[in-house]
Design a binder for these strands. Structure first.
Lengths: 219, 219, 219, 219
DNA sequence: CATGAATGAGTTTTCATTCAT
DNA sequence: GATGAATGAAAACTCATTCAT
C-alpha cells in the first residue's frame, strides 16, 4: 500500500516498448527514476553524476537520454510522478471521509506515513526540491500548487461549514501545514530517522494544527 | 534596525592582517557576503559562478579566496553570520517579554518582518540552505539546532507554566513553527512577494500556532 | 628493431573495454604517449599543457583522462613503458653474450644507439625524468633500480670471474656508468645532436669504462 | 671550508644597501638564495611557491622581487652563484697540484665532499637543474660549459703529457666524469644519504676513472 | 533500443607579480 | 627599501551529452 502509492509500475508514458517481457525489471524508466531517487538522496542533485544514476539503474549512460531529456528532467519527473501519485493517493484514500477535521487528520497521517517508508524520497523532496531556484520556480512550483490547492480547498470547505476559523486564509493554512510537515520530514530524513518517530510526530502535528485551525465557536 | 540585525559590519576574521583601513568600503569580507546573497538568490548556489560574486562585490576573483576557503565556504558563512545575528536579534528584542505567548507572537513577527526587508536573504535561507545535504548536515544543521533550541525552550517554559499544551513535544512545536514560517517565506520569496503580504501572514500564523499550542485549560 | 624496442603496441591497459577496434590508429593510449614524449621534449613537462598533448595526439582534451589519471600519470607511464622496454631489449639482445666485457660493451652501444634514433625520448628521459623529486622518488626510482640491478649484476658476475676489479662496488659501477651515459645523452640532446656523434661517444665510453673497470691482473 | 666555498657572504651584487647593519643576517639576497635552495630541494622548483621562499627567508613576498627578476631568476642565480663558487674553489684548491692524475683525484674528492655537507644543494643541482629544458638550455648550459672546459682542459693537458689516453675526446671524458659524479650524487641525495657513503664512493670513482683514462703506456 | 567511448565547453582555484602605503 | 593585499591570467580537470556501432 505504502509502496504502491509512490512508486508502483508507473504510468510508463514515454517508451511503452512493444512486447512486455514478463521477466525484465519493472520498466526501464521506472528503474532509472528509482535509482535517481536513491542517488540524489545520498549525494544531492548537483553532486550526482549521470553515470552514477546509470550505474545504479543498471543501464548505460546513454540510455538515460532515451527516457529523459537531460539530467534536470530526471529530477523534474521525480516530482511530477511522485507528487501526482501522492495527490491521487490522498484524494482517493480520503474521498469518502465527510468531516473536514477527520479528513485533514487522515491526510497528515497518510502523508508522513508514506514518507516513513521511503526515506530517500523524503530527502529528495525536502532537500533536492530546492536545489535550484530555476527548477523550483519553473516546474516544481506549478506542480506543488496543485497540492496546495487540494489542501486549501478542504480548509475552505471547513470555513464554509463553520468548523475552521475564518481569520486565516486557506492558502496560508495550507502552506503552513505543508511547511510544518516538510520541516518535520526534513529533520527526520537528515537526522535520526528512527522508525515510528515520524508517526508519533504526525499525530502531534495533527492535533496542533486542527486545534489551532478550529473555529472559535466549535472549540 | 532591520538591516543592522542581519548584516552590519561583521566579524571579518581572516584578513585585515596588519593595518586597518578606516577608509575604504564597509569591509571586503562583508561586501563579498552581501554580493553572494544577491547572486545566490537570483541564480541559485550551483548556477552562480565565483566570478559573478566577485564582479558583484567589485573585487577580483582571487580576492574571494583571501576571505573564504572556497565557494562552499561562502554559503556556509552566510548562514553562520546571518543565523547567528537572527538569533541574537530575536533573543535581545524579546528578552524582556514575560508572557510566553506574547514572546512567541513577537518572535514570529520579527522573523518574518526581517525577511520582508530582505527578499534575497529570505531566498538564500529558504532555498539555498538546502542546496546540498552535505552542507546542510555538516554545517547548517548544528547552527540551525541553536535556533530550534531557542524556540523549543520557550515552548517548554510555557508547558511548565501550564499555558502550552503538554501533549506535543517542544521540539516538534519548534520544528513545525520553523517549517510553517519557512514555507510561508518560500512561497513569498519565489512567488508574488507583495509588500505587506508577509506581515499579514505572520499575524495569521501566530494566531494559528498559538491557538493550537495553547493548553486546553486556558483555551 | 630500434623503434620497436621503445614503442610498439604497448600494454594499453585502461580502456579497450569491450570491443577491440582492429581498424583505427595504433591505439589511443600509445598515440597519447608518443605525442606526450614529443611535446614534453620540446617544452618540458611543466610548460606543456594537457591540451597540447591532446592536440598532438589528435584527441580531445578529455580523452587523455580516459587513459591516464592525470598529467603526472602520463609522465610516469612514459618511464614505465619505455624503461621496461629498454630493459627487456637489453636483456634479450645480450643474453647470449658470454663474456662480461663484451656484454657491457654491447649494452652501452645498444643503449646510446636506441637514443640516437629517438632524440625526443632521450630528452624526456634525461631531462624530464628529474622534473620533480616527488615523481622521481615515488615512481621512477623503483623502476630505475631494476635497471641498476641488471647492470650491477653483470659487473658482479665479472668480479666473480676475476675480470672486473673488486675494489669498486658493483652498484657504484652501475651508477657511474648510467651517469656517464646520461651525461653524454644530455649534452647530445640539448646541444648539437649531430648524427653519429652519439655512436662515436659510446665506443669511447665503453673503452674508458671497461679499461677502468678491468681487474688489475687482466690489464 | 666546506660551507664557505658554496655559500659565504656572496657577491651581493644587486642591492648593496648603503649602511651595513653589523647585526642583520648575512645579506638579504643571500638569505633568499639559501631559503630557496632549502625549499627547492624539499619540494622541487615548480611545486615551490614564491611565498614559501619568502617565508623561509623571513621576508615579504614582494621583497623577493627587489633582488630577483622573477622566480626563474632565483633558480638561475643559484646555479650561477654556486657553480661559480665551485669552480673557483676547485681551481684555487688544486692550482698547485702538478700531476694531472693527482689533480683530478683531488677534484673528485673536493666536489663530492662539498655536496656531502650540503644535501639540499646537491638535490637542487642534480634534480632541479633539469626542471625546465628552457632554463637548462638558456642559462645553465653556458654556465655548465665553463665547468666542463675546466675539467676537459686538465684531461687535455694529461693527453699532451702522455699520461691520459688519446683515443677519448677530453670533452667526452669531462662529461662522463660529471655524469658519473652527478649520478652518484643523485642516488645519494634521493636515497640513503648516509654520512661518509659519498666520500667512499668518491675514492672508488676516482680510481675507476683514472685507471680507465690512463694512457696505455703508463698503465 | 542500447551502449559507452569520445568529446570539449566551462569553472574553480592557484599563484606569480604588482604597487599603494 | 619593505610590505602583503589585491589582482586576474591561466590551466587542469570534470562531466553532461552525443552518436557510431
Amino acid at each position: 500500500m505504502n509502496e504502491s502509492a509512490f512508486s508502483s509500475a508507473a504510468a510508463s508514458k514515454e517508451p511503452t516498448r512493444g512486447r512486455k517481457k514478463d521477466k525484465s525489471l519493472p520498466d526501464k524508466r521506472e528503474r532509472i527514476l528509482r535509482a535517481a531517487i536513491k542517488v540524489f538522496a545520498r549525494k544531492g542533485f548537483y553532486a550526482t553524476r549521470v553515470s552514477e544514476i546509470a550505474k545504479a539503474a543498471g543501464v548505460a549512460d546513454g540510455t538515460i537520454y532515451l527516457y529523459f531529456k537531460n539530467k534536470d528532467d530526471v529530477l523534474i519527473r521525480i516530482f511530477e510522478d511522485r507528487l501526482t501519485k501522492l495527490l491521487d493517493y490522498l484524494q482517493k484514500e480520503t474521498a469518502d471521509i465527510l468531516g473536514v477535521e477527520a479528513r485533514l487528520r487522515r491526510i497528515i497521517e497518510l502523508q508522513l506515513g508514506l514518507l516513513e517508508g521511503q526515506r530517500d524520497l523524503a530527502e529528495v523532496i525536502t532537500v533536492n526540491l530546492r536545489q535550484s531556484s530555476r527548477l523550483l520556480k519553473q516546474y516544481a512550483a506549478p506542480l506543488f500548487n496543485q497540492y496546495l490547492e487540494f489542501i486549501a480547498s478542504i480548509f475552505a470547505k471547513g470555513q464554509d461549514e463553520g468548523v475552521i476559523r475564518k481569520d486565516v486564509h486557506p492558502f496560508v493554512l495550507a502552506r503552513s501545514l505543508w511547511g510544518a510537515l516538510d520541516g518535520i520530514a526534513l529533520t527526520w530524513a537528515l537526522g535520526d530517522a528512527q522508525p515510528g518517530s515520524l508517526n508519533r510526530a504526525s499525530t502531534q502535528i495533527a492535533s496542533l494544527f486542527l486545534d489551532g485551525s478550529r473555529a472559535p465557536s466549535s472549540r
